[in-house]
Design a protein around this nucleic acid. Structure first.
Lengths: 189, 189, 189, 189
DNA sequence: CATGAATGAGTGTTCATTCAT
DNA sequence: GATGAATGAACACTCATTCAT
């Protein structure tokens, strides 16, 4: 019981560190955030961070893993319904996540386009995005679209464009408009 | 004349450093490229880089400025033609640039999504992209599109999506397909 | 207790660095003493100096603070006696300190007459010297001197002159003579 | 004739540099003043400074030499008069110089109390101050003072004290008062 | 679990000086 | 005389990481 308690505490501590680190990484940049700054902000000692995560690099991977699994949960939280409704749910989930996990997506973009950090996270990330692309393709097939491959390609480009545009300056109007446009184009046949 | 010679040499030296720096920044990442590494690779002394550019940050700005002005030249090298043709030229120029100045665009994405580097280049960059967006909007108007605002918005999102997708893994096929799609959608009424 | 031990060790480490730094600053000059030289001489790593003091400038301030507080202790270690005896004690304390803390006073003069270092220490120093001047004035009043203001002014000029002259070439005879003269003039009415 | 002209021009150029350098050295500090800053301020090229002076160290020596010889001129500009009048003239010349060549004396103090710069100027300076001390001693003898050695020692300590006190904070009142006190003590028997 | 003193390689930058023109 | 591009050693400082307690 004691162990369980201590473990739980450790988990809380780890999650707390992850949250603080994500905030700092996304607002200051990964390379501009020192491990010391994370420790200070999280109110822990230098040693504890390395006890839990081993390295700064590994802390970064933990952030990505933890956040992606949370987002996955949201995406998969769907009862089975008709494909159009499903795709709309996915679109909404993604665009909602963009605002809710804004910090994460900021970090995500930063990491993905820097050679050194990209190498660290590419594994965790690529699996996730492949799964997502396949999902959309399947839904478009079920929806009876003539060119599901072409359409899902277009869809993905548009989705990435929405993300990249929004994250470049956090313009909310852009986000609303993009969501509307993407629904118009790919939900109605 | 003597002065001209010496100035010319200095200009060459500066441009050489800029080129080397761009290559290293884009392949290794800005923060992972030391000024020393740039000097070594360029075959110059530590001091010369700072003599010419003053700081690493300023070197970065110089890269962005120099490249953007080159790209601008290409975009504006248009005789007057009908708007459809002009838009196609712009699309081609942009997608060509993506391959030709691939290094620059890699760097561009990395810089734009990192808070610290973004701050450094935002001024130089935003002017450029605003000008480009306005241009597309005007062309769409001239083409007689019903909703030039909505269409140019879509166009921009799609263009950004193409860029972001391509630069994430340098998949050439994706680029070809995206160019084709964007032409289909926005060149034919 | 454990904490106390570790803190104590840290305090020793800091004091050791201060002592080494003072020696090097005073013998080589502040600007000619690199932080690395201090670390080497003190047998510590580069990082530790900055861990404890944050900057070279702050190390300098710590030296001044620490030494001034030591000297203050000596000056104030007086039982209550008649003003003449008190003034003599103060004169002796000051002239003794000049020999005992010779390194500090060398540094003090160097710092005080350089614009950049002066700015760093002026705060710590001025308070100390004001307090001292006031003390002498009060004693001269108690001694019943006719012009305590004029006399304490003269006294201060003479004291500063003794210091400056001695520290310019470390001539011991000069110091003995100056101490004798100052006592003759300001202790006897 | 042409040569003379060119030489004259060179002398002007050299003197100009010396003046600029003295100003910068005294206001920013010797070590905090880069040769480049001097060149910029003087409106000359990097090379010219080194063409004229060979090194920063040598520029410093030139400043000291040039200024001391100017001050010497002032001190020696005396018709022969009675010793009391002569001493008063010397006192006045020195205290006037303190205000007129304030920049030089600031620099002088800074240099004299820093080990590295002291080594550079000690030769030029010590000769000058020895000569001055001897002069005062001789005058006190002629004035018929009982203890010319002791008095001239006191005088020197007081003079140095006045200088050091004034230069520590450039308090004009202090200077006036000190001049008055020194005349009272050593001009009247 | 947790602390924080200690490490040392690495960073961007400065600066006196040289030299071809 | 005069220029200014070029040099390279030195510098203050940072930071991920370790380890004794």
């Amino acid at each position: 019981m004691k162990k369980a308690k201590s473990q739980e505490k450790a988990e809380q501590s780890k999650e707390h560190i992850v949250l603080v680190a994500m905030r700092l990484f996304s607002t200051r940049g990964y390379h501009k955030t020192s491990t010391q700054a994370i420790c200070d902000e999280a109110g822990i000692s230098t040693g504890l961070l390395f006890y839990h995560f081993g390295s700064k690099e590994n802390l970064l991977k933990s952030i990505v893993k933890m956040t992606l699994s949370k987002i996955d949960e949201t995406l998969e939280h769907n009862g089975e319904e008709d494909p159009v409704q499903l795709l709309e749910n996915i679109i909404d989930a993604f665009f909602d996540s963009l605002k809710e996990n804004s910090q994460y997506w900021d970090l995500y973009m930063a990491l993905l386009y820097q050679p050194d950090t990209k190498a660290q996270i590419v594994e965790e990330v690529s699996e996730h995005s492949t799964k997502f692309r396949r999902r959309v393709f399947e839904l478009m097939e079920k929806m009876g679209r003539k060119d599901p491959a072409g359409d899902s390609f277009e869809f993905e480009v548009f989705r990435v464009g929405s993300f990249a545009s929004y994250l470049a300056n956090h313009n909310e109007k852009l986000l609303i408009q993009a969501r509307k446009k993407i629904k118009e184009r790919y939900l109605n046949l």
